[in-house]
Design a protein around this nucleic acid. Structure first.
Length: 590
RNA sequence: GCGCCCGUGGCGCAAUGGAUAGCGCAACGGACUUCUAAUCCGUAGGCUGGAGGUUCGAAUCCUCCCGGGCGCACCA
C-alpha cells in the first residue's frame, strides 16, 4: 500500500517532468539494505539513455519534484542513480490502520476483477491412488488458484478425468483377474499393487452379490440405467454419505439381477472407476484440495464433441490423411511433428479428445486456461498449443506448465518404488507420515519447475528443515502474547487511536515488513510461483521473532501495550492470510 | 540425435534485470527468574557449473560447452 503510493507519486512526477518518456521499466521496490531507506526506484537509470542525460542529474530532478511531499521523511540520491525514499512513521502507522481495517481481505487486490480463468491440475488417471507428483501438483495448483482469486480473478479448479481410454480397462482386467481367483496369466499391461486386490475384494463383497452374470449375449436394454445405478452406489459408499442413496432399482427387477457378460463387464468397469475417483477425491480433500469440477473425457465422446472438433479442425485445412490415419499439421504451429488425430482403425486419438476438451474450455467462456501437467507430459505442450492456435485462440489463452518430479528420500536414502509392481508412496501415505501442513509447505517452498528432493524423515522432524513450523510458531507466539495480555487485564487490539505511540525503530521496522504482502501475493500469482509467498512469510516470521526478543509487548504502560498489540494484530493478520493461501493451518498454540 | 526443465556455500533452497547474492539445516560461540528457547544474537563458509555476448547494471536475458533429470507412440 505504501509501496503503491510511492510508486504512483514517482510515476506522476516522471510523466509531468518528461511526458514523452517510456516509463514501463521503472520500478519501485522495498530496499533490501537498511542504508537505502525504505523504498527505492531505478527511474533515473532507466531514463538515462532515453533522455541522454547522466542518471545522477535525472535523479536530482526527481528528488526536487517529490521531496516536499509530506509522505517522505527524506529522499536521497545514491550512485549510480537510485533514488532512495524514507517514508514518515505516520504513513507507516496509517498502513497498519488499513491492515486492521481490511483484516481477512488484506492481501487481495482488484487487478484481475472481471476475468474468469480455469486452473486444471492433478488430472491423474483413475487407475490407482495418487502419487507424490500428483500431491505436488495438487498443492501447487490449489494455491495458484487461491493466489489468482486473491487478485480478483474468478477461478475454477478442474480435474480432468481420463475415464475413456484403455488404462481403466487394464485396471478392470486386473481386478477381474483377482476376482476370478488369480487363474491363468496376469493380464498384459495390468495393474499390480495391493489396492487392486482390495478392489477385487470390495467388488466381491458389495457388487457381485447384486448381479448374476452369464446371461444372453444380447444387448441388455436396461444396461445404461443399471450402469448409472451402480455408479451412484459406488460413489455413495466411497463417501460414506447416506444422503446420496442410490436410486431405486429399475422397474420390475429383483436382486440378484441376471445380466449378460458384457453388461456385467460394463458394470464392473463403472464400479471400479467410481471407487478410484472417490478414493482420489477423498485423499485430495484430506489434503485441503477440492475441485469445482470433475470433467469426464467420456462426456466429450458421448456428446459428440470429439467429432465436432474434428470437423472444425478439418475446416482449417490443417488435417490430412496419411497411411490410413488422419493427421493434424501441428508442425505448422511450432510443434516438432504432425500428430495423429484419427487412428487408421477409425478411433479418435487421445490427442483429439484433448483438443476437444480444450475447445470446450474455450466455449465454456474462460478468459484463460492454465494446465498444470506432470513431468512426463511436456511433449504435449507444443501440440496442444498448436491445436488451440489452429482453432483461432489467441496465443497465451492456453498456458501450460510443468510441475517437476519429486524424488522421495528417507533419511538420505532414496525410497524404492516400483510403479509396475504398484509399490509407491501415495498422497495418503504422505499425509499420514508427514502431515498436510508440512507436505504442502514443502511443495510450495520450491519453484514448481525444479526437481524436488523430498526427505520424508526430515519433513517430519521438529527441526527447522521444514520452515512451516517456523512460520506457524510465529503465529502461535502472537496468539500467546494476546492470551498473556488478556490475563493481565488488557483488552485485545481495540484501540486504534493509540497507534501514534508506535514510534520506535523496532515498531516501524515491523510494520514496514507488512507492506509488501499484497504485492508478493500478486507477483506470485502473475508468475505462477507460489514459493514467493512462502519465502516472504519466512522473512516476516523472522522479523517478528527478532522483534519479540527485543520488545516486550505487554508492559506496565497500558497505552503503549495496546498500540503494540495492534501491531501484533497486523502481523497475525498477514501470517494468517498468507498461510491460508498456502492451505496451511495457522495454529493458536503449538 | 532432437526438444523441454534444472545446475547458487557441505546439504536443502531464496532473490518482479538493480546497490555488498539472502535464508534454513549441519559446524562453532553465546542468550531462558521474561509475553512459549519449535526462539534469538554472533562466527565461519561463495569467482551463482564453464566461456563468450546484450545492458549503465546479469544468478536472472541471448549463444556455445559441461553435468543431472525428463520427454520424444496410430498409449493415455
Amino acid at each position: 500500500m505504501i509501496l503503491r503510493r510511492v510508486e504512483e507519486r514517482i510515476r506522476s512526477a516522471l510523466s509531468r517532468l518528461w511526458p514523452d518518456a517510456d516509463i514501463t521499466a521503472v520500478r519501485v521496490e522495498a530496499a533490501r539494505e537498511k542504508g537505502h531507506g525504505d523504498l527505492a526506484t531505478n527511474a533515473a537509470l532507466v531514463l538515462a539513455k532515453q533522455l541522454r542525460r547522466a542518471p545522477l542529474d535525472i535523479a536530482a530532478d526527481i528528488v526536487a519534484d517529490i521531496e516536499s511531499d509530506p509522505l517522505f521523511l527524506d529522499v536521497e540520491i545514491a550512485p549510480p542513480g537510485f533514488v532512495n525514499c524514507r517514508v514518515t512513521p505516520a504513513a507507516w502507522r496509517e498502513l497498519l490502520g488499513r491492515i486492521l481495517l481490511e483484516g481477512d481481505r488484506f492481501g487481495t487486490t482488484k487487478e484481475g476483477e472481471g476475468r474468469r480463468e480455469q486452473v486444471e491440475f492433478v488430472s491423474a488417471n483413475p487407475t490407482g491412488p495418487l502419487n507424490v507428483v500428483s500431491a505436488r501438483a495438487a498443492a501447487v495448483g490449489d494455491t495458484l488458484a487461491s493466489l489468482l482469486e486473491a487478485t480478483g480473478i474468478d477461478v475454477e479448479r478442474e480435474f480432468y478425468v481420463n475415464d475413456f481410454g484403455s488404462q481403466v480397462d487394464h485396471l478392470v482386467e486386473s481386478v477381474a483377474y483377482f476376482l476370478d481367483g488369480e487363474k491363468g496369466e496376469f493380464p498384459e499391461n495390468g495393474y499390480r499393487g495391493a489396492y487392486v486386490a482390495d478392489l477385487a475384494g470390495d467388488v466381491a463383497a458389495n457388487l457381485a452379490p447384486l448381479f448374476r452374470p452369464g446371461g444372453e449375449e444380447n444387448d441388455d436394454p436396461g444396461a445404461a440405467a443399471l450402469e448409472e445405478w451402480v455408479g451412484e452406489i459406488a460413489a455413495g459408499e466411497g463417501k460414506g454419505d447416506s444422503s446420496r442413496n442410490a436410486p431405486p432399482l429399475p422397474e420390475g427387477r429383483k436382486l440378484p439381477l441376471a445380466v449378460s457378460e458384457k453388461t456385467w463387464r460394463a458394470l464392473l468397469r463403472r464400479w471400479v472407476l467410481e471407487k478410484m475417483l472417490e478414493g482420489q477425491r477423498e485423499d485430495l480433500a484430506s489434503f485441503g484440495v477440492s475441485f469445482d469440477s470433475w470433467y469426464r473425457e467420456s462426456r466429450l465422446h458421448g456428446e459428440g464433441k470429439v467429432e465436432e472438433t474434428l470437423a472444425e479442425l478439418e475446416k482449417t485445412g490443417d488435417v490430412y490423411e496419411k497411411g490410413g490415419a488422419w493427421w493434424f499439421r501441428s508442425s505448422k504451429y511450432g510443434d516438432d511433428d504432425d500428430r495423429v488425430i484419427r487412428r487408421s482403425d477409425g478411433r479418435p486419438s487421445y490427442f483429439l479428445a484433448d483438443i476437444a476438451y480444450h475447445r470446450e474450455k474455450a466455449l465454456r467462456g474462460f478468459d484463460r486456461a492454465i494446465d498444470i501437467l506432470g513431468p512426463d507430459h511436456h511433449g504435449h505442450i507444443a501440440r496442444m498449443e498448436a491445436a488451440m492456435e489452429a482453432l483461432g485462440r489467441k496465443k497465451g489463452w492456453l498456458e501450460v506448465f510443468i510441475v517437476q518430479q519429486v524424488n522421495l528420500v528417507r533419511g538420505g536414502k532414496p525410497v524404492k518404488m516400483s510403479k509396475r509392481a504398484g509399490e509407491f508412496v501415495t498422497l495418503r501415505n504422505l499425509i499420514d507420515e508427514v502431515g498436510v501442513d508440512a507436505a504442502r509447505f514443502f511443495f510450495l517452498m520450491l519453484r514448481p519447475n525444479t526437481h524436488l528432493n523430498f526427505d520424508m524423515e526430515l519433513a517430519t522432524k521438529k527441526s527447522l528443515d521444514n520452515p512451516v513450523y517456523y512460520v506457524q510458531y510465529a503465529h502461535a507466539r502472537v496468539c500467546s502474547v494476546f492470551r498473556h495480555a488478556e490475563a493481565a487485564g488488557i483488552g485485545a487490539g481495540t484501540g486504534n487511536g493509540c497507534l501514534d505511540l508506535l514510534d520506535s525503530p523496532d515498531d516501524i521496522e515491523l510494520i514496514r515488513f507488512l507492506d509488501p504482502f499484497p504485492g508478493v501475493v500478486a507477483s506470485a500469482a502473475r508468475h505462477r510461483e507460489p514459493q514467493r509467498l512462502g519465502a516472504y512469510l519466512k522473512e516476516l516470521a523472522a522479523t517478528f521473532h527478532t522483534y519479540y526478543h527485543k520488545v516486550k509487548v505487554v508492559g506496565p504502560q497500558e497505552e503503549i501495550t495496546l498500540a503494540r498489540l495492534a501491531l501484533l494484530e497486523g502481523v497475525r493478520t498477514v501470517l494468517r492470510n498468507g498461510l491460508r493461501l498456502l492451505g496451511v493451518s495457522a495454529p493458536d498454540s503449538m
